[in-house]
Design a protein around this nucleic acid. Structure first.
Length: 642
RNA sequence: GGACCGGUAGCUCAGUUGGAUAGAGCAACUGCCUUCUAAGCAGUAGGUCAAUGGUUCGAAUCCAUUCCGGUUCACCA
C-alpha cells in the first residue's frame, strides 16, 4: 500500500473515532506538501468542518494529534496552517521503504489483471515516407502500450497498413510513366522515399494538367466536363463571378477549392489513375504485380525506420485484405432494419436522433466507403483476439469518424462496440503553422532522426568526455541521445493537445529534455562504478537516524512511481511519465550538487559516516532504477556514461 | 451555421475528483568547476490564468454568456 493510501485510511479511521463520521478513504483529499512547509503530505480538512463543528484549525489539530498517537509508525509529527494538516511521515517508514525497494527491479510492475487490449497505431499509407506527424503517433502508440503492459494488461500492438487505394495508384502510375524502371537498388534511394517521390511527381503533373482546365472553365468554356460535373462546374463558375463572392476571401477560398477539385477529376492523368485502381480491384495481374513490387519497396523502407525507432508490432493488418469487409455487417443491419436504402440503392444510417447526421455506408454501386471498412475491421479484430478494449491511436481530426464508428457498432449490437476507444492526439505543427505537403513544409521522419543523432554526436564530441570510448559504443550513445531527445520532445506534451515542434528547441540537450534525465542516470552510474557497493550488505541495511531534506525528497518521489504509473494508464498519457522522470532527475541533480561551505552535502564517496554512505547508495540505486524504468516506458534507453 | 477541442510568463509547456504566495524549461541577467560528470546547480526578473458574471469558506480548475483560434460536419482515406 502506498503512503498516500496509508494516510488516507488512517485518516478515515481517525475521523470515525473523533467525529463519528464514515468517509471512504479514497474520498479524502490529500496533496503533496508545499516545500516551504514541514511535512510530505497534506490533508485538507475543510470538508470535515461540516460535521466536526469546529474551526478548520481546530479540526486539523485534533485529527493530527489522533493520527500521531494512533499511527506512530506512519505519522511522526504534524503542523497546521489554516485548514491544511501537514503530515510529517515517520523517517523510519521511509528507511524501511528504501530498504525493501532500492534493489527491486520490478518496482511498480502490476500483476496481470486478465484484461486484453489492442492498440492500433502507426497505420501508414504506403505512398509516402513517414513524417513528423507519424512520429508522434508511433511514439504514443508504443509508449501507451508499454504503460498498459506495466499496469498488468495483455497488449496486442497492431498496425493497419493502408496499402491500397487511389493514392497508391498515383505513385504506381507516375513510376510507370517516368521512372524508366528505376528501383531502390538501382538508385540507392530508400524504397518508401522512392515511391513517395513518384507520388510527388504525379501531383505536379496533375497540377500542370489542372490549371488550363480551370482557366477554360472560368472563361465559360466547359469542354473538359460532361454530364453532372459540367452542370456543377457551370454553377460554381457563376457563383465565382459574383462580386459579393469576390469580396469575401473565405468563401472565395472554399469555392476555389471546389473548382480545383472538380477540375482535377477531369485531367488525363487522374483518369488514368482511376483506371488503374479499377484494374487493381479487378485483379489485373500486371497492375497487381507492380503494386506488390512497389509496396515491397515501401515496407523495406518502413521496417528500417521502425527498427531505428525501436518500434514493433504484434499483428499486421493490410487494408487490401480488409477493405471488402463490413459489407456483411451492412447486410445484417439492413435485415435488422437499423440501416436503410435510398432510391439510388445507397445504404445509410440515420444518426440524427443522436445529434449527428445521416451517414453513408455503401455507395449506390455497392462499393464500400472508409466507414464500412472500419466497421468490418473492428469485427475482424475482435474475432481474432476478443479483447476487452480496442484503442485507435489516430489524430483528432478524426474525432467525428470514431464517434460515429462506435455508435454504429453499438446500434448493430456488435460485441466489440463498447471496447472501442479513440486515443485522439493533437496535430504536430511547426512554428510557421501546419505542415502542408503542397508548400513542402512536411518534416521527413528519416531526415529528422538523422539530424537529431548528428546533433547528439556533435555535442558529445564537443564535451570531449568520452574520447576513450570505442566507436561502436559512441554510435550507440549518439542514437540513445538523439532518438531519446526526439521521443521525449514529442511525448512530454499531453497527447490530447496539439503541439508546436520547434526544430531548434527539439535538438536542445538542456532543460526539460531526455538528455537531462539520461545525464542524471549516467551520473548515478558513475558513482556506483566508483564506490562499487556490496549489494548484500546494502540489502540488510535499514537506515536509522535523520534524513536531509533532499534525501527524503528523493525517497518520497521514488515512492510515488506506483501512483504515477497508474495515473499514466488511466489518462493514457505518457506525458505523465515524462514529467515525473524529469522531476526525479531534477531532484537528484539538486541532491548531487548541494554544497555547504564549498563541501558537497550528499557526497557518497566521502560520506560523513558509513551509515550515510549506505543510505545514499540505496537512494541513488533506487533513483537510477526508477529513472530507467520510466524512460523505458517511453521507449527511451539510458546510458552508463555520457 | 451545427458539433467537438483549445486560450496559463516573450516562446514551449505543467498544473482540473475546487485548496496555501499559479510552477518548469527556453530566451535575458547574476553567481558557482583544486573534492562522486558544469549536458549541471543556486539565484534575479517576467502573470488582470482570454473577458464578464455566477456557485463556494475558497475558482486557472465548476456553471453561464461573450471574444479569439483550431478541427470536423465528403458517395476522400
Amino acid at each position: 500500500m502506498s503512503v498516500v493510501q496509508s494516510i488516507k485510511s488512517a485518516a478515515a479511521a481517525a475521523i470515525k473515532a473523533l467525529f463519528d463520521q464514515t468517509i471512504p478513504a479514497k474520498d479524502i483529499a490529500i496533496n503533496t506538501t508545499k516545500p516551504e512547509f514541514e511535512g510530505e503530505y497534506t490533508i485538507l480538512v475543510f470538508p470535515f468542518t461540516k460535521f466536526s463543528r469546529l474551526k478548520p484549525e481546530e479540526t486539523a489539530d485534533r485529527l493530527g494529534k489522533y493520527l500521531q498517537e494512533h499511527n506512530p509508525d506512519l505519522v511522526a509529527g504534524y503542523n497546521v496552517i489554516k485548514g491544511f494538516l501537514n503530515i510529517q511521515v515517520n523517517e523510519q517508514y521511509w528507511a524501511q521503504y528504501l530498504q525493501q525497494h532500492f534493489n527491486n527491479r520490478n518496482i511498480g510492475k502490476k500483476p496481470a489483471n486478465g484484461k486484453k487490449v489492442m492498440v492500433e497505431y502507426s497505420s501508414p499509407n504506403t505512398n509516402k515516407p513517414l513524417h513528423l506527424g507519424h512520429l508522434r503517433n508511433n511514439f504514443l502508440g508504443y509508449a501507451v502500450s508499454e504503460i498498459l503492459k506495466a499496469n498488468g494488461y495483455e497488449v496486442i500492438k497492431a498496425n493497419l497498413v493502408n496499402d491500397r487505394g487511389i493514392h497508391i495508384c498515383k505513385s504506381m502510375l507516375a513510376w510507370q510513366l517516368f521512372a524508366h524502371g528505376d528501383t531502390p537498388e538501382s538508385t540507392g534511394i530508400k524504397g518508401d522515399h522512392l515511391v513517395g517521390d513518384y507520388y510527388v511527381k504525379f501531383e505536379s503533373i496533375l497540377k500542370e494538367q489542372t490549371e488550363p482546365i480551370i482557366a477554360r472553365a472560368l472563361e465559360h468554356d466547359y469542354k473538359d466536363f460532361e454530364g453532372a460535373d459540367k452542370e456543377r462546374m457551370e454553377k460554381l463558375v457563376t457563383v465565382f463571378h459574383k462580386p459579393e463572392i469576390q469580396a469575401d476571401e473565405e468563401k472565395l477560398d472554399k469555392l476555389n477549392d471546389e473548382i480545383r477539385e472538380l477540375a482535377r477529376k477531369q485531367t488525363e492523368i487522374m483518369q488514368q489513375a482511376k483506371i488503374m485502381l479499377q484494374q487493381w480491384e479487378a485483379g489485373n495481374p500486371e497492375v497487381r504485380a507492380l503494386w506488390a513490387t512497389m509496396n515491397g519497396w515501401v515496407y523495406k523502407g518502413f521496417n528500417q525506420t521502425y527498427k531505428r525507432l525501436g518500434i514493433d508490432f504484434d499483428k499486421m493488418y493490410y487494408e487490401s485484405e480488409t477493405y471488402l469487409l463490413g459489407k456483411d455487417l451492412v447486410e445484417e443491419g439492413l435485415a435488422k432494419g437499423i440501416l436503410f436504402k435510398k432510391e439510388d440503392n445507397s445504404v445509410w444510417i440515420d444518426l440524427t436522433a443522436d445529434g449527428l447526421d445521416e451517414k453513408l455506408l455503401l455507395r449506390g454501386d455497392g462499393t464500400s466507403v472508409y466507414m464500412t471498412q472500419d466497421l468490418g475491421t473492428a469485427r475482424l479484430k475482435y474475432a481474432d483476439y476478443q479483447m476487452d478494449q480496442s484503442l485507435y491511436v489516430v489524430a483528432d481530426e478524426q474525432n467525428y469518424h470514431f464517434k460515429v464508428l462506435q455508435l454504429i457498432l453499438q446500434k448493430l449490437q456488435e460485441p466489440c462496440a463498447d471496447g472501442i476507444y479513440h486515443l485522439s492526439y493533437g496535430m504536430v505543427e511547426l512554428p510557421s503553422g501546419r505542415m502542408k505537403s503542397r508548400e513542402g513544409t512536411v518534416v521527413d521522419a528519416d531526415d529528422l532522426i538523422d539530424e537529431m543523432i548528428a546533433t547528439a554526436a556533435e555535442q558529445t564530441k564537443e564535451s570531449g568526455k568520452l574520447d576513450d570510448m570505442t566507436e561502436d559504443a559512441q554510435g550507440l550513445l549518439y542514437n540513445m541521445i538523439g532518438l531519446g531527445g526526439l521521443k521525449f520532445f514529442l511525448l512530454r506534451v499531453d497527447p490530447k493537445k496539439k503541439m508546436v515542434f520547434d526544430p531548434r528547441e527539439s535538438i536542445s540537450l538542456q532543460g526539460f529534455t531526455s538528455a537531462f534525465v539520461q545525464y542524471a542516470y549516467a551520473r548515478i552510474k558513475s558513482i556506483l562504478r566508483e564506490v562499487a557497493p556490496d549489494i548484500d550488505k546494502l540489502e540488510g541495511y535499514c537506515h536509522k537516524g535523520s534524513l536531509t531534506t533532499l534525501e527524503k525528497a528523493l525517497i518520497v518521489l521514488n515512492e510515488q512511481y506506483d501512483n504515477v504509473l497508474e495515473e499514466a494508464a488511466k489518462e493514457m498519457s505518457p506525458s505523465v511519465i515524462a514529467n515525473y522522470a524529469y522531476q526525479l532527475a531534477q531532484t537528484f541533480n539538486s541532491f548531487y550538487a548541494e554544497k555547504k561551505d564549498g563541501i558537497p552535502v550528499h557526497s557518497v564517496r566521502q560520506a560523513e559516516t558509513p551509515e550515510k554512505q549506505k543510505l545514499r547508495l540505496q537512494i541513488i540505486k533506487l533513483t537510477a532504477n526508477t529513472i530507467a524504468k520510466s524512460m523505458k516506458l517511453l521507449g527511451i534507453e539510458v546510458p552508463e556514461r555520457m
